[in-house]
Nucleic acid binder design. Structure first.
Lengths: 224, 224
DNA sequence: CATAGAAAAGTCGGATCCAATATACAATCT
DNA sequence: AGATTGTATATTGGATCCGACTTTTCTATG
């Protein structure tokens, strides 16, 4: 007898679940910058003890999403203008290289998936979904590079600024511009022009970063 | 009355201490690849309970130094040839950029410190100290870039391959070559030639990576 | 003697309990 | 009244205990 076996031990630990939930809540902006995270409170939300919560918080701190102070607790991390600039500069460097490495390895299927994500992006005015769609588009192209180490770092970098990006894109009219630039990047990939795809990706990220900085300097100057 | 004030809050938790100790032991190769890490064994070593140990292990896993499996425990992570290649490629990209950004900001003091680290490197045949000296040299130059985010990522990347690097450099004669290349990089920095410093750094890292791969393919092929 | 199955030991993840520290607030003194 | 000190509460970090799962060992049986 042959059975379709399923690995029942997906056994995501409680800590995994808490970690993923909090990560999602932070990058989507549900938990505001500076907000306190009480271990007890989180534990009761998830019907668990504080132990897995502490492990989750420890991981979040490693990834820069929260800061903790001994005997004081955890707060959602905010980023200074300088830190945001640095992260965008870094992303521009790394993601441009990733897509340069990816283009020669792309096949029709990759490009087709990316094209669908790109179109999806155009017709979607919902900001909550925007972040996911944006990620899907970029990652669908990056995957072809077969560079898991790069991608993991890109993911962590993006996590830290996703929240700000979304705010800026929905409040200003950055989404149309982002869409056009995505189309340009996709065209370069289809044409097999790795250098051009890299250059456009770099400009796309740096441009978004500059727009975000301008936006933040305005809002932060006028007190929220 | 004036007192010499001392911060009595020894800000290091037990988990911090365990984490740093294990990290050091792993990157210095004292804990061999594949070695099992038992929680209560480590706990008794540090005269503590398993709780801080678990937190330390969780952080080590986030940084890729160990892998854990539910109910089975943690083992020191090994890297495949492909993973090592990818990390070197990544380091070459990022560290070249960091030094390019750093050169225009270097002052006499920075260069003097770097020069001393470089000389120290030449006269030191002890492999245990080599890793530290190598790091000091590179970081003393990188610091000038004032890019904490880049540097943190460089640090984590280096942690993962430090062990292999050291093995290769002591068993083959890579140290003299590394020393010469360090001198070249330092000269470019002194001359204020950012592009040249970046190019040399890139070559330095990629060259070390290639040498390491050759070394590993030999040793791994012939069983240990 | 080999092997399947049961029992025992070892290990990990999570719950609960205790200690250390911080914060808020009331009491006291000038 | 204002500042300072003591106290009560809240919160975190660590220890111990318990249940789940894996691995190993032992035993019984063909």
């Amino acid at each position: 007898m042959k059975l379709e076996t399923v690995d029942i031990r997906q056994a995501a630990s409680a800590a995994d679940i808490v970690y993923e939930s909090l990560r999602k809540a932070i990058i989507e902006g549900e938990l505001a910058e500076g907000e306190n995270l009480r271990q007890d409170q989180i534990a009761s939300m998830f019907n668990t003890s504080r132990i897995p919560v502490r492990e989750a918080l420890s991981r979040l701190e490693q990834n820069g999403l929260i800061t903790t102070e001994r005997y004081k607790g955890a707060v959602v991390a905010g980023l200074s203008i300088e830190e945001i600039e640095e992260i965008f500069e870094f992303r521009a460097l790394v993601e441009a290289e990733v897509i340069r490495l990816a283009v020669p390895k792309m096949n029709a299927r990759t490009l087709d998936i990316a094209r669908r994500h790109c179109e999806e992006f155009g017709g979607e005015p919902n900001s909550a979904k925007w972040g996911e769609i944006n990620r899907n588009f970029h990652y669908s192209l990056y995957e072809a590079a077969r560079r898991p180490y790069y991608l993991q770092i890109v993911r962590v970098s993006l996590d830290r600024i996703d929240r700000y990006l979304r705010a800026q894109l929905t409040l200003t009219d950055g989404m149309n511009r982002a869409w056009r630039e995505h189309q340009g990047i996709l065209d370069a990939c289809i044409g097999g022009d790795a250098d051009r795809a890299a250059e456009l990706t770099r400009d796309h990220i740096l441009g978004a970063g500059r727009a975000l900085i301008v936006f933040l300097e305005e809002t932060r100057a006028h007190g929220d």
